[in-house]
C-alpha cells in the first residue's frame, strides 16, 4: 500500500503571493495546522505552518531563554499582536521549504519522514510536483496499523 490510498484529497491551500493576513484567515476558517503553498501553476513550493504565524506574536524572551518555566504570569506579553508590516508580508517570505512525497511513496517511508522532521502533515504530489493531497500522521499511522496481521481483525 502506498501513501496515495491514505491521503486526504480535499486540501486547503494558499498561493505563494498571498499575504499572511489571508493565511491567518484560512487557518481559522478551515481549522488546520498547515497550509501547502502553491504557485500559480498549482505546483507545491512550500508549506506554511500554524506555528510560523504564531511565532509572530510569541514573546521574544521565549526564543532567547533556555528555561522560563518559572515565569507564571506573562503580564503584558499576553497581549502581543503582530504588526501591520508583519501581517502584510508575503507567504513566500515566511514559508518553510516543503517536506513532501510523491503519491507512489510507501507508507513506512512517509511515516519515517513525518517522524524525522517532526511534522503532522505531509503534502503528496504527482510526478509533475502538482499537489494531490495531504497525508497526516494519523492517516499514515492508522494505514500502517491496518496492515499489521497480529491485530485481530473483527
Amino acid at each position: 500500500m502506498n501513501v496515495k490510498a491514505s491521503m486526504k484529497k480535499q486540501v486547503v491551500t494558499i498561493l505563494d503571493t498571498d499575504n499572511l493576513g489571508k493565511a491567518a484567515k484560512q487557518f481559522v476558517q478551515f481549522h488546520v495546522g498547515m497550509l501547502p503553498v502553491i504557485n500559480a501553476e498549482g505546483k507545491l513550493v512550500g508549506v506554511l505552518q500554524l506555528r510560523d504565524l504564531l511565532n509572530l506574536a510569541l514573546p521574544d524572551f521565549t526564543r532567547l531563554m533556555e528555561d522560563f518555566d518559572f515565569v507564571v504570569s506573562f503580564g503584558a506579553a499576553n497581549s502581543i499582536q503582530p504588526s501591520k508590516e508583519q501581517i502584510a508580508k508575503k507567504v513566500s517570505d515566511v514559508m518553510e521549504p516543503p517536506v513532501f512525497v510523491e503519491d507512489t511513496c510507501g507508507l513506512t517511508r512517509a511515516f519515517a519522514l513525518l517522524h524525522k522532521h517532526n511534522l503532522t502533515d505531509l503534502p503528496v504530489v504527482d510526478a509533475e510536483n502538482c499537489l494531490l493531497g495531504i497525508a497526516s500522521r494519523v492517516d499514515v499511522g492508522t494505514a500502517i496499523l491496518k496492515g499489521w496481521e497480529i491485530i485481530p481483525s473483527d
Binding site: P59, D60, F61, L64, M65, F68, V71, S73, F74, G75, A76, A77, I80
Partner: peptide
C-alpha cells in the same frame, strides 16, 4: 542578564 531583561521588559510591556 540580557535575555532576562527582554523577559522583564516584555512582561512590563
Amino acid at each position: 542578564i540580557a535575555p532576562v531583561t527582554v523577559l522583564i521588559s516584555e512582561i512590563l510591556g
